[in-house]
Design a protein around this nucleic acid. Structure first.
Length: 392
DNA sequence: TCGGATT
């Protein structure tokens, strides 16, 4: 059997996953969907199959182990509330699944926002990438790509970087880190309101944990070329590792929306139906299967994809703590984060704090209602946070 | 009187 040279596969198959950027290879059926604000950028270098096996069927390597490099997919950026069943429904609509797993936090049981799907047929894995990569579910744009072979050495290789100069691009950051090893993914978080200004924090995932360790040793506390401040480089937390309170708030909001469903709901449901039917024919269509997805499909289609709306609260008392902010702002809607700014040595509140709310309308209502509100003997000033403290 | 940040 003749096999095409690898480079032909790579160059004529946008979906091969061998060189995959987060928004390439998106199926035509989604190109007319409303685009939400993309608050982050990401690229991914090659992690696809190595190309030494036959195009179809299970591949047995020399040591007798099954090579699942053409059937096993990793799915990233799943909505927090997606269940194992919904995950299986979505990917099972493509073809027969050998196994799949939504990865959860060992202790809390919370989804870590990613999972693995291993298909029986490599063609289905390819189809899944073509069809489902880039699919928008709630506030997330899921990423579907070939999984790297499981190995202890690739675990815990993800770094969190802060203090980056605002002018540093993702490419700059990759260049800085690439001296320590092969970068699998990188991302710089950007401000959602100004649509694209760096927040000065980001992520770098290396291929190997020891590469990540070396990068910490080499770059933590260092000033990048021409930068005024040193950067902080440390191992990243798990995705969506939130405060207990924020998590409860989010779960509450999610549960409420399942039953009150916004107007987007029906539109989005049709979109998902069309996607699956158009690609695979009605015979794969199961109303029950699709119904199990609708709770995920309708929420917040065009809403902010980033951190939310940040509110500045001034004139808090020195004794103020986080709970007062939760109590003040919680009634207006989804609060994802509160922070009281304290003096480092006295640990007393410096008179101000921040509240992040998910929805613009709720944030605006909270500001309108709470600005000028009398808390004890103080009158609060409440406004959207400004991006710069412009001194006169 | 506008931090630190966790995809």
């Amino acid at each position: 059997i003749l096999e095409k040279p690898l480079w032909i596969k790579l160059s004529n198959t946008s979906s091969s996953g061998a060189t995959q950027t987060s928004h390439s290879g998106r199926p035509h059926t989604r190109t007319q969907q409303p685009k939400s604000i993309i608050s982050t950028m990401e690229t991914q270098v090659s992690n696809g199959p190595s190309g030494t096996s036959l195009p179809n069927g299970p591949v047995i390597s020399s040591n007798g182990a099954t090579d699942d490099s053409k059937t096993n997919l990793i799915v990233n950026y799943l909505p927090q509330n997606m269940t194992q069943e919904e995950f299986k429904s979505l990917f099972g609509s493509i073809g027969e699944i050998e196994s799949c797993k939504l990865v959860r936090d060992k202790i809390t049981g919370q989804s870590l926002g990613y999972g693995f799907v291993n298909y029986v047929d490599p063609n289905d894995a390819d189809k899944a990438i073509n069809t489902l990569n880039g699919l928008k579910l709630q506030t997330k744009t899921i990423k579907v790509s070939y999984a790297r072979p499981s190995s202890a050495s690739i675990r815990d290789a993800n770094l969190y970087v802060s203090g980056l100069p605002k002018t540093m691009s993702q490419k700059d950051m990759e260049q800085l880190f690439s001296q320590y090893g092969r970068i699998i993914t990188s991302r710089i978080l950007v401000d959602q309101v100004t649509a694209g200004i760096s927040r000065g924090v980001g992520f770098i995932r290396f291929d190997k944990r020891n590469e990540a360790e070396e990068a910490i040793k080499g770059l933590n506390g260092q000033k990048p070329l021409g930068a005024a401040e040193p950067i902080t480089v440390k191992f990243a937390n798990n995705p969506s590792q939130k405060t207990g309170q924020a998590l409860l708030t989010q779960l509450y909001q999610t549960a409420a929306r399942r039953y009150t469903g916004p107007l987007h709901h029906q539109t989005q449901r049709f979109r998902l139906d069309n996607l699956l039917n158009a690609s695979y024919g009605v015979k794969r269509f199961s109303p029950i299967t699709i119904d199990s997805m609708t709770s995920l499909a309708g929420v917040n289609l065009t809403g902010p994809t980033g951190a939310g709306w940040c509110i500045f609260v001034y004139n808090l008392s020195p004794e103020a703590d986080e709970s007062v902010l939760w109590q003040l702002f919680g009634p207006f809607g989804a609060v994802t984060n509160v922070k009281v700014i304290r003096d480092f040595t006295t640990n007393k509140c410096k008179g101000f704090g921040f509240v992040t709310m998910t929805n613009y309308d709720e944030a605006a209502m909270a500001i309108a209602s709470l600005n000028g509100y009398r808390l004890g003997d103080r009158v609060l000033q409440v406004s959207f946070k400004t991006s710069k403290q412009h001194k006169a």
